[in-house]
Computed example of a mutant assay.
Amino acid sequence: MPDNNERDELHRAIWSIADDLRGSVDGWDFKSYVLGTMFYRYISENLTNYINDGEHAAGTTDFDYALLSDEQAEEARASLVEEKGFFMLPSELFCNVCKDAVENENLNEKLEQVFHHIENSAKGSEAESNFAGLFDDFDVNSNKLGATVARRNEKLVKLLNGVANMKLGDYKDHHIDAFGDAYEYLMAMYASGAGKSGGEFFTPADVSELLTRLGTVGKTEVNKVYDPACGSGSLLLKTEKVLGRDRVRQGYFGQEINITTYNLCRINMFLH
């Protein structure tokens, strides 16, 4: 089945990255680096595809935003922030940072700058709260990555290349929730060894859907959805799937005490 093939391939890719970083990054921290890098790749490709599709539809079939100069791209900043909620310069896209990563002696500083710019691009817009602090768990200067800048950058290169090699395709075309599944797999790999609570586990999609169907029996629409311990947002998102986007009138509300899990929930809600 497609679901199993995609899931197995994703798990193999994550295991490969974990193998490369073995002995340096604790598993509990490792998941933040993987998920943060996956999100960075996603929003880079999401923005690029959005711009390219518009240009191609207008007749410029050979246009590629990733090849544009930063100066040319700046002209569209205001409109893109209004339309997409954020902005990224071509030089700061995931594909371009990856391309130069091996030769970049300041890769850690480059990534820190990129994440800072992404968050700042949303300031003053309706999407500001969606991006604020999203990369807080991605510490590019942590000693856990290495004792020296060179060692840290070596690990960051492996991390970027590992995520670049993941065959994620278009997020909306996937049969699995790539981010949620990656989180669940990382929890299973590391939670017990790190001495963390089993309560941190991502709720499997099938369980979330069953709970949602039980909670909405006899209902065709609801006023709002609330989860007091929302984790990565799986249960909230399943409500949209079960009832339909227009059937939750006033939106989705959740609380989560773990800041890392809270940020994953925000990423999931943002993507959906």
Rank of each mutant, 00 (worst) to 15 (best):
L264G: 04
T212R: 07
P228T: 08
V242G: 07
S44I: 12
F30T: 05
G198L: 11
N153P: 06
V225M: 13
I267E: 03
P228N: 02
I176Q: 02
R12Q: 15
A58C: 05
Y190L: 00
R249P: 00
Q250R: 13
T220D: 15
H116V: 08
T37R: 05
N161L: 15
K219V: 06
Q113K: 15
V102C: 05
F179T: 09
E128Y: 07
S129K: 14
R22Q: 11
G162Y: 02
N258I: 10
D26C: 09
A73S: 09
L80W: 12
L10H: 00
E55A: 15
Y42E: 13
H56A: 10
G85P: 01
E112I: 05
S125E: 10
K31M: 11
S197A: 02
N161I: 10
F138C: 08
V225P: 00
L271Y: 02
D20R: 09
M166G: 00
A18S: 15
D177A: 13
K172E: 12
R12V: 09
S32W: 01
E71F: 10
A194K: 02
L237S: 11
V34H: 03
E6C: 01
L67S: 12
E83P: 01
N104E: 07
K238C: 06
D173G: 07
L93Q: 11
R247Y: 01
L168A: 05
N96F: 06
F30A: 14
Q113A: 14
Y65R: 04
N49A: 14
K224D: 08
V242A: 10
A205Q: 12
Q250I: 04
T37Q: 06
G233M: 03
N5I: 15
N108W: 12
E92V: 04
R152N: 05
F253H: 15
E75H: 12
V102R: 14
I257D: 04
E92I: 04
I257W: 03
K31H: 04
K99E: 14
R245Y: 10
L10C: 03
D246S: 15
T216V: 14
A229W: 01
G36T: 11
Q72G: 03
N258W: 00
S69G: 04
A73C: 04
D8V: 10
F135D: 07
M38I: 08
T260Q: 09
L107Q: 05
E240F: 06
E112L: 08
A205P: 01
V163Q: 01
N130V: 08
T61D: 10
D8G: 08
A101F: 02
L160Q: 08
F253G: 03
R12A: 12
R249Q: 15
S79N: 10
N52P: 09
G231Y: 01
V222Y: 05
S32Y: 04
A191G: 04
I17V: 14
E9N: 13
M269H: 07
S44D: 11
Q255F: 14
R247I: 01
S142K: 03
N141F: 12
V217N: 05
I176M: 00
G233H: 00
L160N: 07
D100R: 14
I51E: 04
T60M: 10
S234P: 02
R151M: 09
K123W: 01
Y171C: 02
F87Q: 08
M269S: 08
L93Y: 06
E240G: 13
Y252V: 11
L134Y: 12
F131Q: 03
D246R: 12
L156E: 06
C98W: 03
T260P: 01
A73E: 10
F94G: 03
D3P: 00
N141C: 07
N263P: 00
E109V: 11
A132E: 14
